[in-house]
């Protein structure tokens, strides 16, 4: 009895881990992280190209089934599955594009962020920045005195770029760790609390400052919700 329930548990675990590593599930994770993170994350190049192939396959299946005079219910189930995957893909790409729209100057001049974009996103960011630059120049900057015409600086005497909107990394996010993590340095709170290291149990929800777990999100150890 005990052994059979143990085997059942194991097979359930297997099933869970199998489900958790399908590409759609991975895409869902990437999508959730991207949605919750204040800054743009690394583009999941391999995952996205695999998902695109699968969508094409699914489209062919739906086509085949619907022309083959199959049960309309099963066709509509396939269609629904396809629609959901398509939504995830679209939403993922859309969130990234909207982040680029919002912080284009910052992304363009920060090499680390720039390297996270896909080739097409880079093209888009370049065109966009050019367009916005031209727009600002035409409406405002060309009418200002010579020393005040930079998009990135308030005037020529500013030493660094002080007119570039940046994402707010101090915001709080909901997250969950997959494994036991320790030694997380908190970046907020009273100064004497900051020296204490924070630990995370797997599967426990935390509401935490994004800056403190930024590196762990990037390395995939923590998922955002």
């Amino acid at each position: 009895m005990a052994s059979s329930s143990g085997a059942e548990g194991a097979s359930l675990d297997d099933y869970d881990s199998l489900i958790a590593t399908t590409d759609v599930e991975l895409l869902k994770r990437a999508w959730r992280n991207e949605k919750a993170a204040p800054e743009i994350l690394r583009f999941e190049f391999h995952l996205i190209s695999r998902v695109k192939e699968q969508i094409q396959l699914m489209e062919e299946t739906v086509e085949e089934k619907s022309s083959g005079g199959n049960n309309p219910l099963s066709v509509s189930l396939y269609q629904m599955d396809l629609d959901r995957t398509l939504f995830l893909l679209r939403s993922y790409l859309r969130i990234r594009i909207q982040k680029i729209e919002k912080y284009m100057f910052h992304i363009l001049k920060t090499e680390e962020l720039w390297n996270r974009l896909s080739k097409d996103e880079k093209d888009f960011a370049r065109t966009c920045t050019g367009d916005l630059n031209r727009h600002l120049e035409e409406t405002v900057l060309s009418k200002l005195p010579e020393n005040y015409q930079s998009v990135l600086k308030q005037s020529v005497i500013s030493e660094e770029d002080d007119m570039v909107p940046e994402p707010e990394l101090d915001t709080f996010v909901l997250c969950r760790s997959k494994e036991y993590l320790t030694g997380i340095q908190l970046e907020d709170g009273p100064a004497d609390d900051r020296s204490k290291l924070f630990e995370m149990e797997p599967g426990v929800l935390h509401f935490i400052c994004y800056k403190s777990i930024k590196a762990l999100v990037e390395s995939g150890k923590i998922d955002l919700l």
Binding site: M80, L93, I97
Partner: peptide, 18 residues
Amino acid sequence: KSYMSKVLVDLTVDMVPP
């Protein structure tokens, strides 16, 4: 539009989860 034609995905539809 040029970005969407490159990635072959129309991003302006499907704004809410289906």
